[in-house]
Amino acid sequence: MEDAKGNGVTIAISNDPPFMKMNPDGTPGGWGPEMDAAILKEMGITKFSGEMIEGGAMIPALQSNRATLSSSGALFIRPERCDAILFSEPVSCNSEGFLMSSSLAGKVATYKDVADQGLKIGVCAGCSNQKLAIEAGVKEENMVVYPDATTAAKLLEDKRVDIVGNDSFTLSVLFKRADPAEIHFVRIANTRGCAAAGFGKANAELRDAYNEGLRKVRANGKYMEIMKKYDFEEGAHDVETASMEQLCRK
């Protein structure tokens, strides 16, 4: 904590605006880093830098201290991840979703549909959508791994994939930028999960401070102010009833 207060922290982010982005001045921006900054400032940490890291490299970056924490929206809490890093309490809860060619509207609602129809899908490296695709039986040759949401949108636009999987908030943002006559967006039923800030195993003190700061911003209204700023009120649903301990349980 003393080092973080004196020297600041490095937040790992992916190229996923407006969720996460790197500002022109080199500081991390977007919903996640803005929420992180508000939370940590409550605990006396006011210096922040950003490190752009692909999704699949987030956990190794925390383990090697390349980054102090992963931004609050970068990683969903999963039992296997809890073995590798520490998580804060949930900061947002969200479902999985698909973006697809409008020609597939009404034909694809689950990852099993993707597998059964032999469709090509873009999945985030090391993310829950990649795991769900594998578990549903999507063949390896039908999965294209992308490093960030911006690349995912480009894959779909160039017709290199039929579908893109990611969390529904990220995809809803991409959908707003797309031509609705060509692209269809769907939320996947029964896939709600919660995202949180991630920390290396040696940073328990900082993780605990983050949890205290999170409690404070929820109490003083700053949390919902940031959620509303990014039109992400739906991400606040179920957060109060979810817990890191519950989500880490196998």
Rank of each mutant, 00 (worst) to 15 (best):
I11F: 04
A219T: 05
F98S: 03
R187K: 15
K229Q: 09
N94W: 01
A197E: 00
V123P: 05
S168K: 03
F199S: 01
K159R: 14
G55I: 05
F199R: 01
D113L: 07
T170P: 00
N211K: 07
S95V: 04
A242C: 09
D16K: 07
L155W: 09
V164E: 01
K201P: 10
D25T: 06
A197M: 01
L119F: 03
L155Q: 14
R207H: 11
T241Y: 05
E89H: 04
L132P: 01
S72D: 08
C248S: 14
E96R: 04
S172R: 07
S102M: 05
P17L: 07
S64V: 11
I53L: 01
I53C: 01
M20N: 02
E42A: 07
T27D: 10
N65I: 06
C194I: 06
P90F: 08
V164G: 00
L86N: 13
S95Y: 04
D238M: 02
V9T: 06
S168V: 11
L171F: 05
N220Q: 08
V217G: 08
K5A: 09
E225V: 02
G235T: 09
E141D: 14
L69T: 04
G29Y: 07
I45K: 09
K41Q: 14
T10E: 12
A125S: 15
Q130N: 12
M20D: 03
S49G: 12
G235W: 00
V138M: 09
S95A: 11
E157N: 15
E96D: 10
L214R: 03
E234N: 10
C124N: 13
L75A: 08
A236Q: 01
I85N: 02
A125T: 12
C124I: 14
V114C: 00
K47Y: 09
P90L: 06
F98Q: 03
Q63S: 07
G126A: 02
G198Q: 05
I85M: 09
M43R: 13
K228N: 11
T10G: 08
K250G: 15
